[in-house]
Design a protein around this nucleic acid. Structure first.
Lengths: 198, 198
DNA sequence: ACCTGAACACCGTTCAAGT
DNA sequence: ACCTGAACACCGTTCAAGT
């Protein structure tokens, strides 16, 4: 059982090392040999712990999402949660090199049970009163918007191009609030006036 | 001058051939040798016409955006235009293999003048009453949302995972409408009631 | 169970040489 | 001006062999 823990630790160490290589060399410079070297090991050794490079990228993306979700404070309602999650995810993406590119590229890892995974992802929003389909749908939209704006910012030419005309933080925040406000209006129809609950 | 036209044609032919290879082999199977073979040429010949593979991907992304914008009908207002553009872009992305991945990966090409390019991109929205920063910002958000939802759909594992729980078309449409509705509320402040400036 | 050494297939790109 | 032939450096991955 101590053995089992060590293996789990090795996987974490690989992901951690991958983020270090990423910070130094960017996604294009992140290859299996450099990653292995940082772990004082030969490249083929990695394949004992992970299936392939795509899986590694998936683990890195997972790490970013988990980090973002952990940074979301307790919220009074699902609107607040969506806003806080969007901001937290954006922070997690922008604060590391090529973060958005990694998350945009990565395929989700093989979950034991997809239904369980969906439940876990939807959980915080369901706890705040949303049904599960809406929880997944709204969250997926927030992720899209956040990933997109983070990509614009980290993408060199795009950054230079858009950066002259507008502020990324402000534009992202404007979009995020618009999206959540729009969902809010759609999901709470008859209650009062034009602006029931934001 | 006949010469000049031929070169321009070759570039178009390369992009067209690239889309054919893409349709057959996907983005991971799109490489310079296969592309060259389809044009009955050797791989190094391509480098006479394009700088590198990244530029090719950029041209492919441009093609998709141009196609989408050309598909937007005349609109009565900027909200309608944003909705129509989002739907058109989604169609352009989903109707070809790995379309979203291409657009998410690609860096914008070197424009002669970035300010000109920005003006051109913003033009249809500016014509409908939006100022240029808002035109760029709103459009960028719509692109983010559309790219994201199209990615979810293309991405095998993600498709299987989300596809059980919700319908991609419906969820995308819901998000797009929410976003535009939210922008609408933010951009028409003093009109009526309680929701001045969120 | 976990790692090394050596190798394979493949890929983007360069460049001298042709026409 | 435009293309070929040959090559280079690099990369993900495999696999037999070690311990």
């Amino acid at each position: 059982m101590a053995r089992r823990l060590e293996v789990a630790l090795e996987r974490k160490a690989i992901v951690a090392a991958a983020f270090e290589v990423l910070a130094e060399h960017g996604l294009d410079g992140l290859n299996m040999r450099k990653l292995a070297a940082r772990l004082s090991v030969q490249a083929p050794a990695l394949y004992w712990h992970i299936g392939d490079k795509a899986e590694l990228l998936g683990l890195m993306a997972d790490f970013i999402y988990v980090e973002a979700r952990a940074a979301v404070p307790a919220c009074a309602g699902w609107r607040e949660w969506l806003l806080a999650f969007g901001r937290a995810l954006r922070h997690s993406l922008v604060s590391r090199r090529d973060g958005a590119r990694i998350c945009a590229t990565a395929r989700p890892g093989k979950a034991s049970d997809p239904a369980d995974r969906a439940r876990a992802i939807a959980a915080p929003l369901v706890a705040l009163g949303l049904d599960q389909p809406r929880a997944l749908s709204f969250q997926a939209s927030v992720i899209s918007l956040t990933l997109g704006w983070s990509s614009y910012q980290e993408n060199g030419p795009m950054h230079d191009f858009l950066g002259d005309m507008l502020d990324f933080d402000t534009s992202f925040e404007l979009g995020l609030q618009a999206l959540v406000r729009g969902y809010s209006a759609a999901s709470l129809p008859g209650s009062t006036s034009a602006c029931p609950a934001i």
